[in-house]
């Protein structure tokens, strides 16, 4: 085939246009994706904030469940009376269950004996958000992995995706299994997944999460991980802390300390 200069230039130009158009199309797709890496701020949710929690297991008392009671009362968490169907926002479990990929051999007595506090990690890279088909679970600009119960269709993909077992499913009507009811927060419906929301309804009005407010030994510290001068950052600077399953790359916002602090 004989290629003239004119034809060559025309083909080159259209190929460049096509390439540029495709690149722009792909870029706009990723920019508006549900998993966009840069969540934008909104009137009620400040940018430059990543809420996190510091759990001081040296201060947490073994027999105490004040934070669990406070959280589950405030959020109308039902008690189905059956461990299989249990709804958990914050709970205690053995070190082996909470840190299954941590070192387990010849475990220190204090770790083997004491149940560890467990809650949603509000990961910086949350797998539950990626799998949710309706965007019922989404990451807010302030790092809270929030659930929009209105949109949850009960597919439980998020429960399969969460590496921490932080999500529970309402197999029955939760309203029929409440011990008491708090009008400040709605209940859920049958067929809806639920989990800890870092008390987004409370921090939105300037209060601390219910568990933090209730803890009488100040074992829980809540704050902005992106603020160098925050109390939580001070704890993370001065204490040896651990995230759960860090090898997964989910980057949890909940940090644990086991040794007593010297500060």
């Amino acid at each position: 085939m004989n290629k003239s200069r004119r034809n060559f230039l025309v083909q080159l130009g259209s190929a460049a246009l096509f390439g540029a158009g495709t690149a722009a199309g792909i870029h706009s797709l990723t920019a508006t994706s549900a998993f966009g890496a840069t969540p934008t701020g909104s009137p009620g949710i400040p940018k430059g904030t990543r809420w996190g929690m510091f759990v001081d297991m040296a201060r947490c008392e073994a027999g105490c469940s004040d934070c669990i009671t406070a959280c589950h009362t405030k959020h109308n968490v039902p008690d189905f009376g059956n461990p299989k169907d249990e709804i958990k926002w914050i709970w205690k479990d053995s070190y082996a269950k909470v840190f299954p990929t941590g070192s387990q051999q010849f475990l220190a007595q204090q770790l083997a004996d004491k149940p560890v506090l467990s809650l949603c990690n509000h990961c910086a890279n949350p797998p539950c958000v990626k799998v949710c088909p309706t965007q019922a679970t989404f990451k807010r600009a302030d790092g809270i992995v929030e659930m929009d119960f209105h949109r949850c269709i009960g597919c439980r993909f998020c429960m399969a995706a969460c590496p921490y077992g932080s999500r529970s499913f309402n197999w029955r009507n939760p309203r029929e299994f409440l011990k008491q009811v708090d009008a400040e927060y709605p209940t859920r419906e049958i067929g809806v997944v639920e989990k800890c929301n870092f008390c987004s309804e409370r921090i939105g009005t300037g209060r601390q999460p219910a568990c933090v407010e209730t803890c009488k030994t100040q074992a829980l510290v809540f704050g902005n991980l992106y603020d160098k001068n925050s109390e939580i950052r001070e704890k993370l600077r001065t204490r040896v802390t651990f995230q759960r399953k860090p090898e997964l790359g989910t980057e949890p916002s909940v940090f644990y300390a086991f040794e007593a602090g010297h500060v």
Binding site: P43, G44, I45, F138, E146, D148, H150
Partner: peptide, 12 residues
């Protein structure tokens, strides 16, 4: 209202 409160935290 529900979308802006739950998803954007805009309560007013």
């Amino acid at each position: 209202w529900r979308n802006s409160v739950v998803r954007d935290g805009d309560r007013v």
